[in-house]
C-alpha cells in the first residue's frame, strides 16, 4: 500500500516540525521571547550531528547529544542580548542571526561542504531493522522523542521554574520587582528551547539523509510561527496541532491542484497567501489559537 507510505512519511515530517513548534512555543508562549531565528537551532542541530557522524565517525547517540548541546549553547548566546534589548529589537536581531548561521553553513565549505550539502548520512540502526519496516520504525522513534520532550517540557512548565517564566511573559516589571532574576530565567529557557530544536534538526538530518543550506531559509521559521499561532501558544498540544494543520494544509494543495483552475505557480502563491491571511485572522479573532492555554489560578 504505497499510500500508507506517504502517510507515514507525512506523519514523520509533522512529528519533526512538532518538535520545532514546541521549542518555539516554549520561547514565545511561556517566556514571551519572540524568536524569528528559530531555524538556526534546526540548522545547527542537523549540521552538527550529521557532520560528526559522516566526517568524524562519532557514534550516532553521541552525535545527537553534542548536536543538542551545541544548539543549546547557541540558545544561550542568543539569549545574552535580551538583557539590554526590548523584545521587538531582539526579535529583529534573531532574524538576522538565523540568516548568519545559514550563511556560515553556506560559505565555510571546508567544514560543511558549502552549497553541495552533507551527503551520505547513514540510517540509524539500519542493520537491525528490516527495510520495509524502517519508515514505521523511524516514525515511532520520532514519536518517542516527541513524548519525551512533551513530558519534559510539561514538567518544566508546571514547576516553579515554569511559573516564573509565565510571570516574565505576563508581567516582567512585576517579576523584577519581586527580586526574580529574569535574565537568568530567559537564558535557561533559551537553552532548553535550543536543545529541543537541535534534536529536531538531528532527527531531520538522519531521516532525509542529506542536508544543505537550502533547508534552513527564513521561510521555515515563518511556517513554525504559523504553526504556533494557529495551534495556540502557552501549551504544547497546540504546537502539535498547529504542526499537523499547517503541514497538512501545505500538502493538501498538491492534491487540490487538479481540481482548482489555477496554474501551479498561482496555486503555490495562493497557498502562502492563505497561510499569511490565516496568521492575521487568528491574531485578530482568535489570538489564543485552536487550543486555549489553561490558566491556573494560584493563591
Amino acid at each position: 500500500m504505497p499510500i500508507i507510505n506517504f502517510i507515514i512519511y507525512l506523519l514523520t515530517m509533522i512529528g519533526i516540525y512538532s518538535l520545532l513548534a514546541m521549542s518555539l512555543n516554549f520561547q514565545v508562549g511561556f517566556t514571551g521571547l519572540i524568536n524569528f531565528g528559530q531555524v538556526a537551532f534546526f540548522c545547527i542541530g542537523a549540521y552538527t550531528s550529521s557532520l560528526l557522524v559522516v566526517n568524524a565517525g562519532v557514534p550516532v547517540v553521541v552525535a545527537f547529544l553534542v548536536a543538542m548541546a551545541l544548539s543549546g549553547i547557541f540558545g544561550y548566546i542568543m539569549s545574552i542580548p535580551t538583557k539590554s534589548l526590548k523584545s521587538d529589537y531582539w526579535a529583529i536581531a534573531t532574524l538576522a542571526s538565523g540568516e548568519i548561521v545559514r550563511l556560515v553553513a553556506l560559505n565555510e565549505a571546508w567544514l560543511t561542504a558549502g552549497p553541495f550539502g552533507v551527503m551520505g548520512i547513514p540510517q540509524i540502526l539500519k542493520d537491525l531493522i528490516p527495510k520495509d519496516a524502517y519508515p514505521v520504525f523511524y516514525l515511532l522513534f520520532v514519536i518517542a522523542c516527541i513524548i519525551m520532550v512533551y513530558i519534559f517540557l510539561s514538567m518544566l512548565t508546571n514547576s516553579p521554574f515554569g511559573r516564573n517564566l509565565k510571570a516574565i511573559r505576563d508581567e516582567e516589571e512585576l517579576c523584577l520587582s519581586l527580586g526574580k532574576d529574569t535574565q537568568k530565567l530567559k537564558l535557561q529557557a533559551m537553552i532548553v528551547a535550543g536543545t529541543v530544536g537541535g534534536l529536531a534538526g538531528s532527527l531531520f538530518a538522519f531521516y532525509i539523509q542529506f542536508i544543505s543550506p537550502e533547508n534552513f531559509k527564513p521561510i521555515e521559521t515563518f511556517l513554525m510561527w504559523a504553526m504556533i499561532i494557529v495551534g495556540g501558544r502557552g501549551n504544547f498540544k497546540g504546537a502539535i496541532i498547529g504542526a499537523v494543520v499547517i503541514q497538512l494544509f501545505n500538502v493538501s494543495t498538491r492534491f487540490l491542484g487538479n481540481y482548482v483552475p489555477l496554474g501551479s505557480d498561482s496555486m503555490a502563491a495562493l497557498r502562502m497567501t492563505i497561510i499569511g491571511v490565516l496568521i492575521i485572522l487568528f491574531l485578530l479573532f482568535r489570538p489564543e489559537g485552536l487550543i486555549k492555554e489553561k490558566k491556573k489560578v494560584y493563591d
Partner: peptide, 12 residues
C-alpha cells in the same frame, strides 16, 4: 507578528 503575516500574504 501580525505585520509578518501581512507581509507573507501581501507578497504572495
Amino acid at each position: 507578528i501580525t505585520s509578518m503575516g501581512t507581509a507573507i500574504a501581501l507578497r504572495n
